[in-house]
Every structure is written in C-alpha cells, then in structure tokens.
C-alpha cells in the first residue's frame, strides 16, 4: 500500500508550545483521524504540513514527493478545509470561488455546480450570512471541486450539530469510493471517527502517542469493570488507566485476558475511541 503523506522528524516551537519530533504516515485509500484534546498540536501540525507556518525541522512528503520542492504540484492535488471556513466574509460564495478556483489546474466547474446544488447552497449568497453548517459545506465544495486526491481538514466538524456531522461523514465516504483517494482530518469529537475512520493518530502535548488501525485498536483495548477489593498493584499495572470508587473500578487495558485470570468478577466491554484516547492522556 502506498503512503500519500509522510511526515518525519517535524519540530516546531510556537510560543510556549512545541511539536516534538512528529512522525507519521497516511496510507492511501484510508480515512485517517487525527485526534487530541484542544491545544495538543493538531492545528500546528496541519499548518506545518501545508507550509502555513515555517517548521523548525523535519520533512513532509506527499504522493512520494518532497513538499518543499514540489509544493505547487502537491497542493494542486490536495483539498483543504480549515476550521470555520476561512473566507472573506464580505464576498459571495461565487466570488470566493472565482478567487480560489483559478489556482487549481484541475478545477472542475461542473463538479462545483452540482456540489453547490446538492448541498443547497446559493452561489450568490454572501458568506457572512451563512450558518456554520453551510460554511463547512461550502469549504467542502471548494475542496472537492478540483479533483483532489487527498483531503486535509482541520476540525471540520467542530460546532456542527449531529445531523450535519452525519451528512459530512457520508460525503467523506462517498468521496472515498473512488480509487486512490485519502482523507486526513483532525477532530476532538472522536465519535465522528467511530463510524468512518480507518486509521487513528493520537497527538498529545505536541507528541504522537500512537498511530493505529482503528479496528485493531478497538479489538486490542477493552474496558474492564470489577470489584476494587480484587485489585492489587500487580493487576493495576496491567491497566492503561483506571478509575476507582468504593463500589467498583473501571479501567482501560489491552491485557483483558490476564486481568480476567487475576480477578474473578469482572465485566469486559468494547471501548469507544474516546475511552482509549482518555485512557492514554488522562489516566496517569
């Protein structure tokens, strides 16, 4: 399987914040979710990849080519959605399009028109009058209308209601049906990913915590609940994180089998991505 994006050794200091040796790769034909709490470094990573902020060190390769050397060629194949629609609010959608479109050599006007129609957007409407959901859709239209092979999105779903988020996920799945397409998007709403993601990358405090297949992740980790009297230091070490009350404990672990043999009365459940994320960043 080819990698559409390879980030290696990325470092960036930004005020008091730092990205520390960020490495990851995005496989082709996959939706990769980039998760982490606010301030973990998601936006800075994405901006560094796109060259919006100069990086201190590291390389970014897209489609096998170096981003620094082939920047325009690569950007021509990437569709971007920045959070809350990065637009000149006083323009109409049609005017905004007329500024963005000529930058792309593969701009497809028919695709643009049919997308606008499908999403119920009126090109003559002023951007400042659009709702959050409409803005996100318009961002998507711009990103989808130039035959991009990779979509990179920064928090596209933040502030949207569940119905629109669901529509958004379906649009992504539709996009993925064509061969050779990939999506990378950051979010702190991990439930978005339960349904659509193939890969999950977790970043915390400027560092990559893990990079895993979503299903493998959900198969490996279990929520284990049981009797706190049965917990000993040895068992405790098998947990990623654990919460205890007088009546029970709830923990997240990839050693469910060992714990089962150590404790008599336990329940195991399948976790959501959020449980795993919190297990990694909040448990210690």
């Amino acid at each position: 399987m080819n990698n559409v994006l390879e980030v290696s050794g990325l470092n960036k200091s930004y005020g008091t914040f730092q990205l520390k040796d960020v490495n990851f790769t995005l496989p082709e034909n996959c939706i990769t979710g980039f998760i982490g709490i606010n301030g973990a470094g998601k936006t800075t990573t994405i901006k560094s990849i796109l060259g919006l902020v100069p990086k201190d060190s590291g390389t970014v390769k897209a489609f096998g080519k170096d981003m620094g050397k082939y920047e325009r060629e690569i950007k021509n194949r990437i569709g971007i959605v920045l959070d809350e629609g990065a637009f000149y609010e006083e323009l109409t959608m049609s005017e905004m399009k007329s500024i963005v479109a000529p930058a792309y050599s593969r701009w497809n006007e028919n695709e643009y028109r049919s997308c606008m129609e499908r999403f119920d957007l009126n090109p003559q409407q002023k951007i400042s009058t659009l709702s959050k959901g409409m803005r996100m859709k318009f961002s998507l239209v711009l990103a989808l209308s130039h035959e991009a092979d990779l979509l990179i999105m920064d928090e596209p779903t933040s502030g949207l209601d569940p119905l629109i988020r669901n529509q958004f996920m379906n649009i992504l799945l539709e996009f993925m049906k064509k061969e050779g397409k990939s999506v990378f998007f950051s979010t702190h709403i991990t439930s978005d990913l339960d349904k659509v993601a193939d890969m999950i990358i977790l970043i915390n405090d400027g560092q990559i915590v893990f990079e895993e297949e979503k299903d493998a992740l959900l198969d490996t980790y279990k929520i284990v609940k049981g009797n706190p009297q049965e917990l000993f230091d040895k068992t405790r070490k098998l947990f990623l994180s654990i919460q205890e009350t007088e009546y029970s404990f709830t923990g997240i672990t990839k050693n469910a089998v060992e714990i089962k043999s150590a404790c008599k009365n336990i329940l195991t459940e399948k976790p959501a991505i959020e449980d795993i994320m919190l297990g990694f960043i909040g448990g210690k």
Partner: peptide, 16 residues
C-alpha cells in the same frame, strides 16, 4: 463487494 463499499456497509475500516 469492493473493499471500500463493504467497509462502509459494515461500518468497519477498509484495512480490516
């Protein structure tokens, strides 16, 4: 079914 369609329908990852 194609890998992507099957994955979408079962709501699992294409990698699976």
């Amino acid at each position: 079914p194609s890998i992507r369609n099957f994955a979408n329908d079962l709501q699992v990852s294409v990698l699976t």
